[in-house]
Amino acid sequence: SLVPTNTANTLGQIRIDHSQCPSRGNLYQIFVAPDSATENNAGGPQRTVYVGVSTDAKTGLPSFTFSDHKVFTNPTGSLGAKNGAGNIFPALATDDLGYLYAVWSDNSNIWFSSSSNQGAAWTAPVLVNSGATVGNANVFPWVAADANGHAVVVWLGDNMPGNSNDSSKLEQTCSNGTNSCWAKWSVYAAETVNGHSAAPAFAQYTASDHIIHYGTVSTGGLGGNANRNLADFFQVALDRQHRANISFADDHVHSPLCTSQSPGHCADNDPQSFREGVPYFTYQLRTNPHIVTSGVCAVAP
């Protein structure tokens, strides 16, 4: 099993290396946990990001093993230590040359680290989001990768600071009785073509063409009182032209069921209107011209 075995883990994606490199078939599992069993027993936050690596899963034997490697531990007192590194969830991708990319959220910002030796060691985390998004609520990171160092990170971000679960900050009472002063959420994407360098450069875009949600966004699963309309419906994939394809949930308009579920409250800007998340899809129109498809495979540990 993955270690530390006595901690509460939050799992992200399982990834299999499909490259033509010696790392082909490696199995990777990203997760977050307290930094030690002692911290877990004391109710500590899930402040450490790990990746479990199996190099023998590809052998086809009835059992296989994992070696767990620490990606990053959020320092005591940081937002990552206060809010944890789940926010949900941590995410992982492998590119066509066997390089690995891990992303996570401290609820305020999105962080990125890479491994050039099959998960054994990781670069110092770099901030993905930029500009006006820095310091606001930024959650639900996902990542996809394909060509040499090409990775796209997507996430949900709002327009004001405060924890995504905090209604006292993100759902204040508006003077006009609407939700116009609530946090406004958009879908963001950031693309890099040198993802496995020590200092990858990201170009950030707003992927949604409208506000997709107002108010809080729950990162507590079924727990807590924050809004869960968007659930966990959010993904990104890269097509054969290396373009990002993004699916996400959206509840910016009221549900047709509002007449029965919230009688008298069916306006799009009414805080009491019944809403349901519905699927939306968008994709990148042009391929990044700086993508490099050839290169050297990730090295062995």
Results as ranks from 00 to 15, higher is better:
L92G: 11
S247V: 15
K184N: 10
T38R: 15
P90H: 09
L97H: 13
S260C: 01
G86W: 09
S197R: 07
V154W: 03
F248M: 07
G60E: 03
G25A: 13
C174D: 07
G86T: 11
H150T: 02
Y214R: 15
G162Q: 06
C266F: 05
G215C: 07
F281K: 10
D158W: 08
G77T: 04
P279A: 14
H265S: 13
N136W: 05
P256K: 15
L285P: 03
P289F: 10
A267H: 08
G295S: 09
L238Y: 02
A120I: 00
S180T: 13
N163G: 08
G12K: 12
H265N: 13
V296N: 09
A244P: 00
Y101Q: 01
H69D: 02
R240M: 00
Y280K: 13
S116F: 00
A147F: 03
V154D: 01
C174W: 10
A207H: 02
A201Y: 04
F31R: 15
R243P: 01
P22I: 08
G25Q: 09
N26H: 14
A198H: 02
G295Y: 06
S262M: 02
D56W: 12
K184C: 05
V152G: 11
S273L: 10
T259S: 12
A207D: 00
S260N: 06
Y101K: 03
T59S: 14
V51Y: 06
A42F: 10
P200W: 05
Y214A: 07
G224I: 02
D232P: 00
G135P: 00
N227P: 00
W122S: 13
L127K: 15
S105P: 01
G295Q: 08
S130G: 03
L79A: 14
N138V: 02
R243H: 01
Q284D: 06
G43P: 03
A151N: 01
L257S: 13
Y188T: 05
V187Y: 08
F140R: 11
V193R: 12
W182V: 07
T173E: 05
A190K: 09
A190I: 03
V71E: 07
V49L: 14
R275V: 04
H254R: 08
T133M: 04
G25C: 10
V253L: 07
T123G: 14
V139M: 01
S108Y: 03
D239K: 09
P22L: 12
Y214L: 05
N138H: 06
D158S: 14
T219Y: 00
F112C: 05
S167R: 07
A300H: 12
S78V: 12
V51P: 08
D96L: 14
G215L: 06
W122I: 06
S36M: 12
L222E: 03
